[in-house]
Design a protein around this nucleic acid. Sequence first.
DNA 1: GCGACATAACTTGTATGCAAGGCATGTCGC
DNA 2: GCGACATGCCTTGCATACAAGTTATGTCGC
Lengths: 249, 249
Amino acid sequence: MSPRKLTMQDPIEKTLLAAITEGRLTPGSRLSENELAKAFAVSRTKVREALTRLQSRHVVSVQPRRGWFVNIPDAAEAAEVFAARRSVEYGFLATAAPFGSTEVNALAAHMAEERRAIAQEDRAMLTCLMGDFHVRIVEQSGNRPLIEVMRNLTARTILISLRYQSNRNALASHEDHCAIFDAIAAGDMTTAAALSRDHLDDVESGLRIDIGPSSLDTLRHTLRLDQVPTGADREGTLSNDTILHDRDI
Amino acid sequence: MSPRKLTMQDPIEKTLLAAITEGRLTPGSRLSENELAKAFAVSRTKVREALTRLQSRHVVSVQPRRGWFVNIPDAAEAAEVFAARRSVEYGFLATAAPFGSTEVNALAAHMAEERRAIAQEDRAMLTCLMGDFHVRIVEQSGNRPLIEVMRNLTARTILISLRYQSNRNALASHEDHCAIFDAIAAGDMTTAAALSRDHLDDVESGLRIDIGPSSLDTLRHTLRLDQVPTGADREGTLSNDTILHDRDI
DNA sequence: GCGACATAACTTGTATGCAAGGCATGTCGC
DNA sequence: GCGACATGCCTTGCATACAAGTTATGTCGC
């Protein structure tokens, strides 16, 4: 299901994070300690451990005596996450040595995955892959702290995009990714860094931050209708109304 | 005691992190759940929560049924942390807008703190401040995700420096900081970024990675002699043998 | 019918109890 | 004297019990 193995220890944390990055858990979704404990056949202690870790990563939050919820990033948080990604991704590419053939091939494999997901019109897989692209670039360095940072920021980016990106355009983003990949493959890291920075600007400017917190999502949240979707209603296809302006992650 | 307020929720986590950044807890120090629970007058549950969070930040680690320990970063981890800092700090400065007078003044206040600590020959405070400099630069942006990243990386850097930096030179580092500050104050962020990157290179190359894991620290660790220092033995002064080549964080 | 209040059924927060395993000490066999 | 083994104390791992608080429900008064 997941396009890539998550190198994480705790299976609960890993499963929850996978569900979020794959769009099965959306911002505002409620996470019951008891239900998770039953689902994973462990005690609440272990569930709380995993939720606490995710909380420190700003992926979930807890309201005292009320419950755990998948984070609903506000506009300020969205801006900060994008700014952080600009710094990290630009800094990484601008200071990195040109990639070797092994690393370029790994990225090329990812580009093929993106193309396949586009061809299959697999919306969930595509969202996940579009975010993964940036993680995979950093992964080629083998720098674990940096990879971790990128994973966290990407997970939060997915929440942001689920929250604010009403109509996205995966194709435009994919083309940006292709350009970044080409620069990396050509060994031109400076260009890759600049392209990456501009790409993030474009994605961010495509966000509809006017979608206020009193919109459908929060209403569903308030009405407790925000359980895990039954599946079919999130399996959207790449409809024709995705025009060329907005970008998908 | 701490040169700066840590914006952290949990007092246990905050206290432990402060003790580490101020050098009262060194790599290999043992952290007993029971003792911490008694010290903070809470149950082991809360202590384990805090330790788990610090574990996910790579500040402490647990050996099953043996105990919790302040992380002893190995050479590979040290290299990765420095490389990550290079990317993040370079990327931040290279993509940041020039600082306003408010931000420059805040940094100037920090520089004064560094000078005062040097004059007072306060080694512990100085180590803390030298790491804090880089955090404070990013703090001026108000970007919380990035600040968090820098705080984590800086905490790990302090562990690295306690582990590998046998004889440090705070003065050389301070001069580097002065140069970076001057560039920022002049609005030349590009130069500041380059200086910051070079500074990290210099600090890293000053590490004595040949101090193998079978050295004094690990021996003390093995022999369980690695309790919290009694105080006096870590209150070193800036001795004259700190020559101009190595740099303090 | 409708509003206010009591109550019951949830939620998380925290402490505690017990299980499982590591490590040092002491003891027994030789 | 010395080595192997057993024992007991220590550690963390985990589940559970209970406390505290929030929300929904039902009921009573009007």
